[in-house]
Write a protein that binds this DNA or RNA. Structure first.
Lengths: 335, 335
DNA sequence: TTGAAAGCGCTAACAC
DNA sequence: GTGTTAGCGCTTTCAA
């Protein structure tokens, strides 16, 4: 069933059918109805390829994420997909994994698919050297590139992010003021936002001259989901003689592990041990006591990102960088 | 950059370029190399639309799920996307929400996009009446339809699922044998798999003549993420006089709520109160004590689903229905 | 082994 | 308001 069949059955030209299909220019109500009737009756739907061929757009946005089963990224994808759809765009999802080579391959694949834009969900796409980020810079020559929670200065690359540095700085300061001095920072990502968070913690601790022992900054290298291993990591630290009565974690899972560690050590939480998480995910209310966590306004970020992308696609001048501030959601693991 | 440019630069016809591009038929090694060189040098990639127009396939599979931020569905999407990619297929993701109308709209949209197949992730796509399932049956006339964790008998529809009934039946029996008699069933979905799970619980309880009070079967109608509301639901039950010392939940989140309820009531777990979850998700190891949960082998299901889909796409005869059995992962909330 | 040319289904510029 | 027609970039006969 093609536009030719419809035009024939309706007794008009293909151009007229195309016009009613696209709601464009002037078609008399009568012919319009006639065509619509035939279309309805035949259950005809236009061929997206042919349309794309001519227009050179599929109204499709590529979404890349390292791992769609990550709680935080999954939520981001969800919001983005929804908002895209409500703007008349579809999405192609690419789960790239964490390797640079597969990321580069994925981004090229999306471009091959003629997506109208690409959204990079999560800060792990940005590396430290320009060389490593070249795959993004190059891709941006072809389509607009949107970064969620990351930052890269390059033409046609737009960043929307949460102010992780300030959020962490404020949260750390708050915990210090609550009386906890020996606060361990527990993180598992050296992505852009990971580095910013750590810097926030560092600034607060150093300001108060509390970062006496570099072991207070702890990188956890294991699996993102292996809570046991995280607990083991903290246990090892404790056994090696490091003393800490507070943990600030770069994400809720790590914080949860810290909470389980505290329970294991028979610390009373929050009286003797404080824990702070990040992302304010579902996990935060799944434990007992519930986790104090930083909410980085994911949905707001996504909304803004899509608005910006739509603007760019519409040919408008749009802000290259937008920063929202986070918020500490106080629950039972801090005083 | 088109095939014409390449053909010109290489001094051959577009047909020849097309041939080397598709590795088809016989091209002399010399011309092949020449063409390949030019392609490389120009960084040319073929236009997917034009190709699709002719071939009428995009090597793309549509993935539908109600909510990609659901822990379980997200994991399923992740595995599916990975395995699809390793088979040379891309995926378009559609988060449909839970309404029938939006599901039908999404499935049509995917067909419009000329996907080669559609995967429905999660059992909430199947309804009770054939009328409601018509949108699937109709879609299957155009492309193969794969169901993950659901079941529907129709031409060109293939189902891969976990044996939820038996898993629940066994788990319930086990809990009964451990000495818990008043077991509440706590569920939030009347999807196909939701119904099967409930039936498994029912069968075990009735076999032991333990289902005296219909209030032991409790549907929770609220948000999937609102743990507080779930706890509230159980509290309300208790206050209304219902006595129960065990909870079997249709998913880990509900089980987690039950665990928090138990703690709230100062029951000792598992000595005085047992809890069983479903999905063996990350949540199971996030609480204290850790949750006994049923693992339904999601990755295996996904692997099999993709294998089947590839077979169907390759024109082979494939099993219409495949059932795997689940496994109880014992942790700290059952004796 | 290669080239010429006819589509694939649609949009949009241009004529009427 | 409506029809004609030239592409869009590629695959695939059919000839050579």
């Amino acid at each position: 069933m093609t536009i030719y069949d419809i035009s024939e059955k309706a007794g008009v030209s293909i151009a007229t059918v195309s016009r009613v299909l696209n709601g464009s220019s002037s078609v008399s109500d009568k012919t319009k109805k006639k065509v619509l009737d035939v279309i309805q009756q035949c259950g005809y739907t236009p061929n997206a390829f042919a349309r794309g061929l001519g227009l050179n757009t599929m109204k499709t946005i590529g979404i890349m994420c390292a791992d769609s089963s990550d709680l935080y990224l999954a939520k981001g994808i969800y919001h983005i997909e929804q908002k895209l759809r409500s703007n008349g765009y579809d999405s192609i999802l690419c789960c790239t994994g964490y390797g640079l080579d597969t990321k580069a391959a994925s981004i090229n694949l999306l471009i091959t698919k003629k997506v109208d834009g690409i959204i990079l969900v999560g800060s792990n796409f940005i590396y430290e050297t320009e060389e490593e980020n070249r795959y993004i810079i190059d891709a941006a020559k072809q389509v607009p590139l949107m970064l969620l929670n990351a930052d890269l200065d390059a033409p046609n690359v737009y960043s929307v992010m949460s102010d992780d540095y300030t959020s962490m700085y404020n949260a750390a300061l708050k915990m210090i003021r609550s009386g906890v001095k020996d606060i361990l920072y527990f993180y598992n990502s050296t992505s852009y936002s990971g580095i910013r968070k750590l810097a926030g913690y560092r600034a607060a601790m150093e300001e108060k001259h509390l970062l006496s022992d570099e072991r207070l900054v702890q990188f956890y290298p294991g699996s993102h989901e292996d809570v046991c291993a995280m607990i083991g990591h903290l246990k090892g630290l404790q056994e090696s003689g490091l003393v800490f009565h507070g943990v600030i974690a770069s994400d809720d899972t790590l914080a949860l592990a810290a909470l389980k560690y505290a329970r294991n050590m028979h610390y009373r939480v929050p009286e003797e041990f404080s824990v702070l998480g990040y992302n304010n995910s579902m996990l935060a209310v799944c434990c007992d006591p519930e986790l104090t966590s930083i909410d980085n306004k994911l949905e707001t970020l996504c909304q803004h990102l899509i608005t910006t992308l739509m603007g760019v696609l519409g040919g408008n001048e749009m802000p290259k960088k937008t920063i929202f501030s986070g918020e500490i959601i106080e629950r039972g693991t801090t005083r």
